[in-house]
């Protein structure tokens, strides 16, 4: 059984600051991390590996530095890693990214169809939640989003290729049943990601990471990178800074304070 997990390297949002003059991200001193939701997706894959002996392949699309997130995944227990990286992929929007990733996923499995492809529910930088569903379209696979628990049998026999997933929705939890192969996006209510062991980290630091570029999987040049991206970013700007609220002190008693408040609200 083959599970593919797609991981994205994102800036650590805990200390992202926007330059007020240029409206761009201040990259200075901002660390790169694995997109937190993707860590939960990886954990689901590793739990299935523990239970069923699946082979876990991790794929990331990004600059060469993104190898760091793949090594982290290998350190935690993933089996193989592929970096999808080329200048030709630069500027890709979610459509071009989903197209590119779908080709890379097939390539990583020597054109076989994966049994399960996992994504985080969204990336914390773009917040679109579109790439996972996009990949399911390109690969023609079933899609389940916002998953917190996945139940599978071994996945070898046809009758065992059924899954049961619990998803987290606004109106409560849904139980979804379907058939593999499938694409799923995972939420943070799922099992806590495991830690990389020291032994695992040492092995991962020596592991081979295959780099795939546009030539590796014969991508259509009109569907990748900036040229393959119908989304045009016109302007990036932070939301206007909210002024602090006004505080009414309870000095003169309730009625005075209330009438002052009402006067303020009416004007």
């Amino acid at each position: 059984m083959n599970i593919v997990v797609c991981l994205k390297q994102v800036p650590d949002a805990t200390n992202v600051r926007i330059d007020p003059k240029t409206n761009t991200l201040i990259r200075d001193g901002v660390e790169s991390i694995v997109n937190p939701f993707d860590e939960y997706a990886l954990e689901q894959a590793l739990l299935l590996k523990d239970r069923l002996g699946a082979k876990v392949t991790v794929i990331s699309m990004g600059p060469p530095q993104a190898k760091v997130v793949l090594r982290e995944a290998l350190a935690r227990g993933a089996d193989r890693a592929f970096l999808v990286s080329s200048r030709a992929f630069g500027g890709a929007d979610t459509l071009a990214t989903a197209y590119t990733l779908s080709l890379a996923i097939r390539k990583s499995l020597d054109s076989a169809t994966p049994d399960l492809v996992l994504f985080g529910k969204q990336a914390i930088d773009g917040d679109t939640a579109q790439v996972g569903p996009g990949v399911s379209e390109f690969l023609g696979l079933n899609l389940v989003t916002y998953v917190r628990e996945i139940e599978l049998k071994s996945g070898v026999e046809v009758e065992e290729r059924k899954f049961r997933a619990i998803t987290v929705m606004d109106d409560g939890e849904h139980v979804v049943e379907g058939e593999l192969p499938a694409v799923m996006t995972v939420v943070k209510e799922a099992d806590e990601p495991r830690f990389a062991s020291l032994v695992g980290s040492m092995n991962a630091s020596r592991a081979e990471i295959t780099v795939l570029d546009e030539k590796a999987f014969a991508a259509d040049p009109r569907q990748i990178g900036l040229d393959g991206s119908p989304t045009k970013v016109v302007r990036i700007f932070p939301p206007p800074v909210k002024g602090g609220g006004r505080r009414l002190d309870w000095n003169g008693g309730a009625s005075e304070t209330l009438s002052e408040l009402l006067k303020e609200l009416k004007s």
Binding site: E43, D191, E192, P193, R194, F195, S197
Partner: peptide, 15 residues
């Protein structure tokens, strides 16, 4: 060790 809770109990992701 990692993944030990405040009471000293191992969490599922205990290392």
């Amino acid at each position: 060790e990692k993944g030990v809770d405040s009471q000293g109990v191992h969490k599922p992701n205990y290392l």
